[in-house]
Amino acid sequence: MTSDMTARVLRLLSLLQTRREWAGADLAERLDVTVRTVRRDIDRLRELGYPVDSARGHAGGYRLTSGTDLPPLLLDDEEAIAIAVALRSAAGGLTGIEETALRALAKLEQVLPRRLRGQVTAVQTSLAGITWEERGPRADPALLATLAVACRDHEIITFDYTTRRNPANRRRAEPCHLVDSGGLWYLVAHDTDKDDWRLFRLDRISDAVPTGRRVPPRPVPGDDPAAFVASRLSAAPTRHRAVATVHASADHVRARTRGLASRLTPIDEHTCRLDASDDHLPRIAQTLAGLDSDYTLDADTDPETIDHLRTTAHRTLRALS
């Protein structure tokens, strides 16, 4: 009896989500119950936090309205697929909502039926987009979802990690936060073997496996994951050195150099110093070209960087002439 009532209330909720307003008699007919039973089920939905408005009289009816909190939603197969694909796309490239999208995706994929997971993967792999600006290696959305769940549940994970100098080796860590910096994703985690905080680039992580062991949440040094990532990145060595004195305010340059805020030093109101060092020479040229301001390269910029910038400038001049 209870299961029948639960199924009927869920069916009622699904109907209310498909139309702006329902007459009580129409709902009763759809559910094969009396109008009085519909009224009782509406009251049950209200007790569960669903804001259902009603109008009395012959032309009265019921409608689901907005409330102060978001109650659980019922999705059909097509709606669930559309939302999962949209969340995966957001996690891959829309600035400012990536981690929120990942948390939502983790919740959805946890309850998504197996038959729908295959459809989501098929749709995602069939879609193509145009990338106008290459910001570096992209992380695998499936890996992002796995790590997002581990961060949320404070679950220890193991994975293979490859660095620029060393081949892949197995790591074990307590994941804490995912941070996007200039198009590159980083995992902030506490390395259990080294007993220290570490920063892992997601494009260098493979074969991530949750262990099933959960631990109490561990606060990030400084209680600011983004600041922790920025401080580690600014201290990390790069292959190519490029430091420029820019004849523009720090705010002007900051707005045009995504992910380099920690490498920007104001000199005065109209001048600042930017460390545009990078492992990729074309990215240095792209960063400097995007400043939309005059600049001079400092003496500690390495010769290889200067040669690349000179070659790029000559190529542009030849094209213009």
Rank of each mutant, 00 (worst) to 15 (best):
L297S: 05
E109Y: 02
H270L: 12
R36L: 05
A276C: 11
M1A: 07
L127K: 05
I156P: 01
R254W: 02
G290T: 09
S206I: 08
R56A: 13
L15E: 04
V38H: 01
D53G: 14
F200R: 04
L94N: 10
R165A: 13
T265W: 12
A299T: 13
A242P: 01
G259D: 00
R256H: 14
T211V: 13
F200I: 09
T211F: 03
G222A: 12
R152I: 11
T257H: 14
G61C: 09
L320K: 04
R258A: 12
D41P: 00
L75I: 08
S249W: 15
E174P: 05
R239K: 15
E99W: 05
A313I: 05
L178V: 04
D41W: 06
E133W: 10
A82M: 12
S14A: 15
G182N: 11
H314C: 02
C176W: 01
Q124T: 11
G61A: 11
D193H: 13
A230E: 06
W197S: 07
A122C: 08
D298C: 08
S89N: 09
S234V: 15
L291G: 03
E21Y: 00
R263E: 00
G93T: 04
D43C: 10
E78C: 02
A168H: 14
V123M: 09
A59L: 13
V33L: 15
R213A: 13
I81H: 07
R20S: 15
L274R: 03
A255I: 10
D307R: 15
L297T: 00
I83Q: 07
K194G: 05
L291H: 10
G93R: 08
L70M: 07
R201P: 06
A250P: 01
T95E: 10
D180T: 07
L184Y: 01
D275G: 10
C272K: 01
A139L: 08
T211D: 01
D77I: 06
L187W: 01
L94G: 04
D298N: 11
T125F: 06
A142L: 07
R201V: 12
L116Y: 00
D302W: 03
Q119E: 11
T146D: 02
T245S: 10
E304L: 07
D292I: 11
T162P: 02
R263D: 05
L87K: 03
V229S: 02
V179R: 00
V229E: 01
A168S: 14
P216C: 09
A59N: 09
W197Q: 06
H240S: 01
P225S: 12
A148H: 00
A255D: 14
Y62F: 04
R36T: 04
R39S: 14
C176E: 00
D76G: 05
Y50T: 07
P225K: 09
R201I: 09
A299F: 15
A168I: 09
S234E: 05
L288D: 02
R232I: 13
M1G: 14
S54H: 11
G24F: 04
L184V: 07
R56F: 13
N166P: 03
E304C: 03
D153W: 03
E79K: 08
I130P: 06
P175Y: 05
A255N: 13
Y161A: 07
V111T: 01
D251Q: 14
L64A: 00
V215A: 14
P266N: 03
L184G: 02
T131G: 14
L15T: 06
H58Y: 14
M1V: 08
I267R: 06
S262R: 12
